[in-house]
Simulated assay, not measured.
Amino acid sequence: MSYSVGTGVPVATDSQQAAGSSGEPTRAPAANRLLWADCAKGLSIIAVCYMHVVTGVPGGQDSGWHWFNDVMDPIRMPMFFLISGLFAHRVIERTLGDLWYRRLWFLLVPYLVFTPVQAAIRIDMVEDVTWQNLGRAILFGDPGIWFLYALMVFNIAACLLRRVPPLAAVGLSAIPAVCIVAAGLTQYNEITHITAYMPAFFLGLHFRAVFFRLAARATDWRVILGAVAAYVGWEWVMDLLVDHVNPDGWTTAEAGLINLTGMVRILTAVPAGIIVAVWISRTPLLSGIFAGIGRHTLPIYVSHHAALYLFNEEILRRLVESNPERWEFLTGMNARIFTGFAVCVVTGWIFYRIGRLPVIGWILYPPALPRRRAVA
């Protein structure tokens, strides 16, 4: 049993290999894992937590804290899904039944455990808690734990298209996004979360050698310059486009245009993210921190958003109400941001420990399902 590089959940996969600068497989020595990929996942989940902390604090989006969020916005989720695709190749070569046992089961269990909690919190925020809304969130992928839902959809789609030529498969993966824009459905996040990132997963799946070569040449100044130019150039185009179509608010068609052009970031921004991840993996102290986080993204992902809501809306409010003079300092923007980071760290560690407990840890890492033996 090993752990999926895309999610941190256990899957029965073959050993993961990638061509390094010497032409030999490069892995994290202790766990038989690709080190820069773990660092890339660590960078992505840190950026996700950072985004939820800063955007959840009044004034945070208009402060200097938001610069890192702006930089990572075109990288964090596309890179997460691309890395997931890089290591899905062994699973999707098999049947749908085998896919269920080897991957979908391990994604479905934490999704069903944590989605009702996150969905209830989100629905409570808009004051529209009903059984119907809760059921809809679970069935169609709530915006809270949507990553696991999207991965299940992507793996199934990849398995169904496994005999389609790689370039055609990537092209087909982009068609749902075009259809959603044409139908004017971009306001439904549970749909756009899937359509926007499916091409990233398919690119990682079918063109993994390209990204392994990119990682192997991450110290080449020409590669670095090209990646930076692509990132900066397309973000400049996006800024111009947003300013042009959004002087007084977007129409549905304009929002759809932004969604489609934003998908190009998979090719223009993610290479820069991979290069940063490779450099992190080659920096001793940072490597250990980012790779350690990247190997355990699932406990952080499923817990931090709900924990931030619980702290900000319940614990902090009650502390201030109980003794304003003592706790008022926690209500400042900087104090709330630092506290939010601490909440993410503590909650991630708690759920990491829960995942290592017998039986109860199955909510994160369920045991493999028993399979029927073939009858001779």
Results as ranks from 00 to 15, higher is better:
V57P: 03
V57K: 09
V57N: 09
G59R: 02
G60F: 06
D62Q: 13
D62K: 12
S63Q: 10
S63T: 08
H66Q: 14
W67I: 15
W67A: 15
D70G: 01
D70I: 14
M72L: 03
I75E: 00
I75R: 06
I75N: 07
M77A: 09
M77D: 09
M77K: 04
P78C: 09
F81Y: 12
L82S: 05
G85F: 06
L86W: 13
L86H: 10
A88R: 06
A88W: 04
R90E: 14
R94G: 11
L99T: 14
L99P: 00
Y101I: 01
R103H: 06
R103D: 00
L104I: 15
W105L: 10
F106H: 15
F106P: 06
L107F: 05
L108H: 02
V109N: 03
P110E: 11
P110F: 07
P110I: 10
P110Q: 10
P110S: 10
L112Y: 07
T115A: 10
T115C: 12
V117D: 03
A119Y: 00
A119F: 04
A119N: 01
A120N: 05
I121K: 01
R122F: 01
R122M: 11
R122T: 00
I123K: 04
I123D: 09
D124K: 00
D124M: 05
D124G: 14
V126F: 10
E127M: 07
D128Y: 02
V129L: 15
T130Q: 08
T130P: 11
N133M: 07
L134Y: 07
G135P: 03
R136K: 08
A137S: 15
I138G: 04
L139M: 11
G141L: 05
P143Y: 15
G144P: 06
G144A: 13
I145R: 01
W146R: 00
L151G: 06
V153L: 15
V153D: 02
N155I: 00
N155Y: 15
A158C: 07
A158L: 11
L161P: 02
R163P: 01
R163D: 15
L167E: 09
L167T: 15
A169E: 05
A169K: 00
